[in-house]
Design a binder for these strands. Structure first.
Length: 423
RNA sequence: GGAGAGGUGGCCGAGUCGGCUGAAGGCAGCAGUUUGCUAAACUGCCGUAGGGUCAUAAGCUCUACCGGGGGUUCGAAUCCCCCCCUCUCCGCCA
């Protein structure tokens, strides 16, 4: 969420951000309602002031035992006026809040303006596409043949796009989670957390999933809870409505969670295998930083996520998202895309985002600045470190052998009971 | 699920029969005095948000906020209703 004062003073910038991000927030309406709202606040406040004065006068008269019936009638009249105005004010405020929640974050100046993913910028790449002297297979084929991925059974249990991992497939997933956790906690300095996998409305609004993405999430009606679409939600909300001591910044968390996404409207796209699924696992990195250092921390965050792919010996590229591809809440975002030789595509395994104070304002996460003596919002950042299914795809397809088996990457062997080959 | 207790400022903790209580007191924090240094002591400051004034400063001023929402009242942290959360006991279950 943006500061209403900031919007007031930067109407053109905000409008431009909406255009560049393809968001249709009604800024003119917002400004108009804000003006009306302030007018109402003025009126209501002055009525309240009057009423408070009368009330304390009455208090004094009562104590000295005098008659108060005249004053009482007057006060009653004002009190009724207040109630009416308050009601209208409340409606205005609700309207304003709703509009405000629909205004996207402003892209950082370093973000290229563009309409869609084709205008994303290639930043860097690691390794090269591996070459094979045999016909490469995709993970779907390999998974079925090796009996380590079972899509049919997953579909029977829950529905299509709920994959099941089995045997060495399930073990591979577990090994990857352990591997990533050890790197991020022991070497990159993140603190491990294991949060709830369901979250309430306040949490979902805090990180920006609500109100926009309600239909993309699984919802438990009886308890008004949502299954989390990413570990970012519970972990960023750890500090919702709290102050973080300035000296503790940056706070860095790593978490593992399953993620649940309805992918409404995405049918027909990436329909096969693990590329796009309703439930998947993710190791997620979340940072709370001082505003001054968030962009440095952003670069480090990217490196932390890249490090995982480098150790696994996977070819990938990093792209800077253009405005049109940038998510609603982000100011700047790098995507890491790993190469999947069998599928023949680069697959996004991590979005590395700086939200600046956008989420922090929504979720009210602050620190007391020693320099200014005032409360300020922290900056929040997150990145997958990294998402599992597409990582599994890249590993199966990259490390496949001529006879249809999979070599276990060196760095994973210790998490795989020393086993070197799957199949 | 049943019975009970409770939710007050960064923390602890008072709040009388509803009326200068945004809220005593303590701790922590900040600034200063004292001190050769440290400790201690002393003095002052010390919630958040939204308006107004205004240079989007300081200051001044108003309003709201004592888990959330609603109600009673001229007036509620204090009374009533609903909800949420925490704790204890019982039941049930991993």
């Amino acid at each position: 969420m943006l500061d209403i004062k900031f919007i007031r003073d930067n109407i053109d910038r905000v409008k431009k951000a909406c255009r560049d991000k393809n968001e249709d927030a009604d800024i003119n309406m917002l400004i108009q309602i804000d003006q009306e709202r302030r007018q109402f606040i003025k009126e209501v406040d002055s009525l309240r002031e009057k009423n408070n004065k009368i009330a304390s006068e009455i208090g004094e008269l009562v104590r000295s035992g005098q008659d108060i019936s005249n004053l009482k009638d007057e006060a009653k009249a004002i009190s009724n006026q207040i109630k009416d105005k308050e009601q209208e004010l409340k409606e205005l405020q609700a309207k304003l809040d709703l509009l405000l929640l629909k205004v996207p974050n402003i892209p950082d100046p370093s973000v290229p303006v563009g309409f869609n993913e084709e205008q994303n910028l290639d930043i860097s790449e690691y390794g090269g596409k591996p070459q094979y002297d045999f016909e490469v297979r995709d993970h779907y084929f390999l998974g079925e043949v090796l009996d380590i991925l079972d899509f049919k059974r997953g579909a029977k249990i829950a529905g299509s796009f709920f994959p099941m991992y089995k045997g060495d497939g399930a073990h591979l997933k577990r090994a990857l989670i352990n591997f990533m956790f050890e790197v991020h906690t022991l070497e990159h300095g993140y603190t491990e957390v294991s949060p709830p996998f369901l979250a309430n409305r306040d949490s979902m609004t805090g990180t920006g999933q609500l109100p926009k993405l309600e239909n993309d999430m699984y919802y438990v009606e009886s308890d008004d809870l949502f299954l989390i679409p990413t570990g970012e939600v519970p972990v960023t909300n750890i500090y919702r409505d709290e102050y973080i001591p300035e000296a503790k910044l940056p706070v860095k968390f790593v978490t593992y969670t399953p993620c649940f996404r309805r992918e409404a409207g995405a049918y027909g796209k990436d329909t096969k295998g693990l590329i796009r699924v309703h439930q998947f696992d993710k190791v997620e990195l979340v940072k709370f930083t001082h505003p001054e250092s968030s962009y440095d921390e952003h670069e480090n965050l990217l490196k932390d996520a890249e490090n995982i792919l480098q150790r696994l010996g996977l070819h990938y590229r990093v792209r800077l998202l253009c405005t049109g591809d940038l998510s609603f809440s982000a100011a700047k975002c790098y995507d890491i895309e790993v190469w999947a030789p069998g599928t023949g595509k680069y697959l996004e395994v991590s979005s590395c985002s700086n939200f600046e104070d956008f989420q922090a304002r929504r979720a009210s996460i602050k620190f007391k600045s020693k320099a200014t003596g005032k409360s300020e919002y922290v900056h929040t950042l997150n990145a997958s470190g990294v998402a599992l299914p597409r990582l599994v795809i890249a590993i199966l397809e990259t490390y496949q052998t001529k006879n249809g088996k999979i070599n276990v990457p060196d760095c994973l062997k210790k998490y795989f009971n020393g086993k070197e080959i799957i199949g």
